[in-house]
Design a protein around this nucleic acid. Structure first.
Lengths: 128, 128
DNA sequence: TTAATTTTAGTAATCGTTACTAATATCAGG
DNA sequence: CCTGATATTAGTAACGATTACTAAAATTAA
């Protein structure tokens, strides 16, 4: 598999993301796994998150501001980021697929990706 | 108008963005205006771009990777970023408005913005 | 003209992330 | 089980984009 070797650290990162679907940042993953492995390095977390992304095992969510977040849920969905509390919520917006098709039709190149990110106030924050 | 004073620098930045619709970065704006005003500071450009954004006069485009870009075109449209040459193109995707309405309908908070960014290869880069 | 307030230039600091390097871990072949 | 080639790591330094700081200069209302 392309000269890739097993790594305990990568396995832990992969496992953490599969169990925690709250879109953690690299640092959040690091802090949590550091508790069980005090020799873990932040750079290792960043490197493996990028690796897992390239392998197609996880998705990177580029929050408007602040650090990137990561998601092991590969099903087609979008994200909402609350501008007040920073929470990231999953969104199901079927029209997104339609939009990609509509855009790809008239585009004179290769349209590969489409990042959709909603923002505003989440239910909790809007209640105030 | 909210205790804001005139500034020659801000006027130059506003003017540059209105005349150049190629989605320049803060540094590109700085380098170009620096030629006419060798005392201009990069921090001043960043500060005024954020100010103009908050005043609703320009839009900030968060490119996937790399620095933010700015756009004085406030009409509803989306952007495409070429992953090969970095060029930013305007896109007209009517379904985007539909998507926002669809999402807002079932959302239990206040859905304010919807950032859509396409990526892939532009026409020129795809030709190779 | 004056005085309050905003803005600036210049620089330092911050944040998220990537790059570097020597040491360690994995793993295929003998 | 060794052994060597290669991948991976920890730790730290460096990086790019942006923001924060501060004293000086510009704007503006009275």
């Amino acid at each position: 598999m392309a000269g890739r070797k097993y790594s305990r650290q990568r396995e832990a990162i992969r496992g953490y993301l599969r169990e925690h679907r709250d879109h953690p940042t690299a640092e959040e993953v690091y802090l949590r796994l550091y508790e069980e492995d005090p020799h873990l390095s932040l750079g290792t977390v960043y490197r493996n998150l990028s690796l897992l992304e390239n392998m197609g095992e996880i998705r990177r969510i580029r929050a408007g501001t602040g650090p990137d977040r990561f998601d092991a849920d590969l099903s087609p969905h979008q994200h909402f980021i609350c501008r007040s509390c920073g929470k990231v919520l999953d969104m199901e917006v079927p029209a997104a697929a339609l939009m990609l098709r509509e855009a790809a039709g008239s585009f004179p190149g290769r349209l590969e990706e489409c990042a959709v990110t909603f923002s505003g106030l989440c239910g909790d924050c809007a209640a105030r």
